[in-house]
């Protein structure tokens, strides 16, 4: 394949992925928006007004970046895992496997598709959050950089989950039992300063904590951890996950018999 042909193949996968989540928007775009609005109303306005400040910020301004990041993480992940596993389940992944499209293009196509949904939902949630909270951007490069890398990392993780999945249960186990606890315990709703010394240290092994804090730094200028750690960690995980996912596609694990 020439570079132009590879680009066409990549563009086709991304276009198809975007078309897929737009076609089923009541399943893909609406639920996260409703969920996040409920979070804002309950934790931000109703309960948040009684909590007062967290790390020197009104509580609603403290949770807003975490809630935005939470929607980016879950939507990036769930788009790729459900789309790729759906393609395996219906066997239309074979359309790609019989084509000359290189595996790295297939991988990038699905991942960029997942990022489009994650970032799209993140943008919608950000616009909605302006209704509930006033905030400005403290550092645009940090905000954009960390959100892009986080979306990339979780899209890659979603693809790996989908490759291994044998049934629909397998694609809900990781989001339910790993992703949700990591997100809830990742500093979305509280500062790790509130935890004791021991639990603060335990929290430091949670990668979501770094992402949420870096994003909060980008928006509000405060963070529980050094921001460069976040970039280093997310970058390292993304590289590792990229090569793991590519290797799985190259070997045809659970894709070719």
């Amino acid at each position: 394949m020439t570079n132009r042909e590879k680009w066409i193949a990549f563009e086709t996968i991304v276009r198809r992925e975007i078309h897929r989540f737009l076609r089923i928007w009541p399943q893909t775009l609406l639920p996260p928006v409703i969920t996040i609005v409920l979070y804002f109303v309950i934790f931000g306005t109703l309960i948040g007004s009684r909590i007062g400040e967290m790390s020197g910020l009104p509580y609603i301004q403290f949770v807003a970046p975490g809630l935005i990041m939470m929607s980016v993480i879950t939507n990036s992940y769930s788009n790729v895992v459900s789309s790729f596993f759906g393609s395996k389940f219906q066997r239309n992944i074979e359309e790609l496997l019989v084509s000359p499209t290189p595996n790295w293009i297939i991988l990038l196509g699905f991942v960029v598709g997942g990022m489009c949904r994650g970032l799209g939902v993140g943008l919608i949630v950000t616009v909605l959050s302006l209704y509930f909270a006033d905030f400005s951007i403290h550092s645009l490069p940090v905000t954009v950089g960390i959100v892009l890398m986080t979306s990339l990392m979780f899209s890659l993780a979603g693809l790996i989950n989908a490759v291994f999945a044998r049934n629909f249960d397998d694609i809900s186990i990781i989001p339910t039992f790993v992703l949700t606890p990591l997100t809830y315990l990742g500093g979305v709703f509280y500062s790790i300063e509130l935890l004791g010394d021991f639990w603060s240290k335990v929290s430091m092994i949670n990668p979501v904590l770094y992402m949420v804090n870096a994003f909060r730094y980008g928006i509000a200028g405060i963070s529980d951890i050094p921001v460069y750690w976040a970039f280093g960690m997310v970058g390292m995980f993304s590289v590792v996950l990229f090569f793991v996912a590519l290797n799985l596609l190259e070997k045809g694990s659970r894709l070719r018999s």
Binding site: T12, S87, S99, P100, T101
Partner: peptide, 20 residues
Amino acid sequence: NFNQFEKPVDILINQAGYFG
């Protein structure tokens, strides 16, 4: 082994895309 939710014309155009 095609996506049952897609339209025939989209299935064909996408398949062509995978071949560049």
